[in-house]
Design a protein around this nucleic acid. Structure first.
Lengths: 243, 243
DNA sequence: GTCTATAACGAGATAGAC
DNA sequence: GTCTATCTCGTTATAGAC
């Protein structure tokens, strides 16, 4: 909990934030590979050794930036998935679209942080265990959304692929044991494909190819929703509670 | 064409290749951001100024690596799309799958070159015009494949999205005027999504999520083929020659 | 205890004189 | 082409201020 605990801790939090802010600035300018503790310290008017009170190493600073970025997209996705409380329930396909758009909006607003977590691996850096929780938040938001739809109105469960029987069962057991394996498989694929669309737009592959980026994205994301079985109209599908 | 033209040119070609090989090695070790002409020269036992006779700048060397990488994936995709000459005609969905697998195989065999072209942009580098031709080869291979299917046996043309009428028409005019706009839209989306699958696998997002990577990929790529209208069985769809 | 500053190490890049 | 003087970097040891 963030109770007031004295000037000591408050100062520490502020300095930590300032270091990360400056590091993010350098991330944008020079890229993750060239992120340097000395340059961060210089820009903040500190001496480089002082930074080690806050981050035990350069890689730990990078890890903090990565975790922050995952948490930021994750929260954007979760908020969009929840829908506005109090308002009439938003249909699940619309929420799916909202999650996609929220992720894309965050990516467009923070392209370098997006590249940090979804782009090329940083040479010489290997992500520690701390990142796996935050890294799963967008995926978890999608799983929760599809689970809600499954329990509320059912899904058009995609056909099973015989070659994926055991892997599908394993993935379902790991990620969402209450969902049909075929849905989990389609969900993981849609998750990766969603970021494929965003990465292509952000990394320039859509230059001279797609112009109405947002419209194109919305269309493609809706199709992805269909691919996991989300029902757009008044059709009925396999129900969670046996239907 | 590559006729023998004398020792001079042959030597130049060999040195150029050696430079690029060494640069690729550094790409793998340190990343594109830290690619330095000096280090390449040192490793080759040359002096840095000598490199400028082969590549006028670091960015030109980078561009050469990028073009080579695009050409390599592009050729892999084209070869897979063609199918083996002389053999009985491979059905189009199988060729689609073959293209996807060829791209993935190349990516797994050349992860750093894949990251160079499909990963985060290199800070401070902007791709020149020379890269756009090679960059389009995989997409062109997919377009050609779908066009063949359309003309031969028709496609299950996906429904039009009203909001994408004008953009779809524009994309079709640019990329494949003989295909229905809805197919072109689905094709571009599938193209981006295909690389989304590969990037997630290569960049570590599938760690602890997908284990049977190849099976999963093949399944997802086949679904992508369906999403552009490729007919898997003996169904019939809208034919190219009016049907 | 908590922080910052000084100084140093070994490694690598860089610029310029020769 | 070569050599050297001068930068950068991550990191640590140490000493002193609050």
């Amino acid at each position: 909990m963030s109770t007031i605990r004295g000037a000591r801790e408050r100062a520490r939090i502020e300095v930590t934030a300032a270091i990360k802010d400056e590091a993010r600035r350098q991330l944008a300018a020079e890229g993750a590979a060239k992120l340097s503790l000395r340059a961060v310290a210089r820009e903040l008017g500190m001496v480089s050794s002082a930074l080690y009170r806050y981050f035990p190493s350069r890689d730990d600073l990078l890890t903090a930036l990565i975790v922050d970025a995952y948490d930021a997209v994750g929260e954007a996705a979760e908020t969009a998935a929840r829908g506005k409380a109090g308002l009439p329930a938003v249909p699940h396909p619309a929420r799916w679209l909202a999650v996609g758009c929220a992720v894309r909006d965050w990516a467009l607003a923070h392209p370098h942080e997006y590249a940090l977590i979804f782009g090329s691996p940083v040479p010489g850096y290997t992500a520690p265990q701390d990142t796996v929780g935050p890294a799963s938040r967008v995926g978890q938001a999608l799983i929760g959304l599809v689970r809600d739809a499954y329990l509320a109105e059912g899904l058009a469960v995609p056909p099973q692929d015989a070659g994926l029987r055991t892997e599908g069962a394993r993935m379902a057991a790991d990620l969402a044991e209450d969902l049909p394996p075929a849905v989990v498989v389609a969900l993981v694929a849609a998750w990766a494909q969603l970021f494929g669309l965003i990465s292509f737009e952000l990394f320039g592959q859509f230059n001279r190819v797609v112009e109405a980026r947002e419209q194109f994205f919305r269309h493609a994301v809706q199709e992805l929703g269909r691919s996991v079985g989300l029902l757009d109209g008044r059709h009925s599908g396999a129900r969670g509670a046996g239907g």
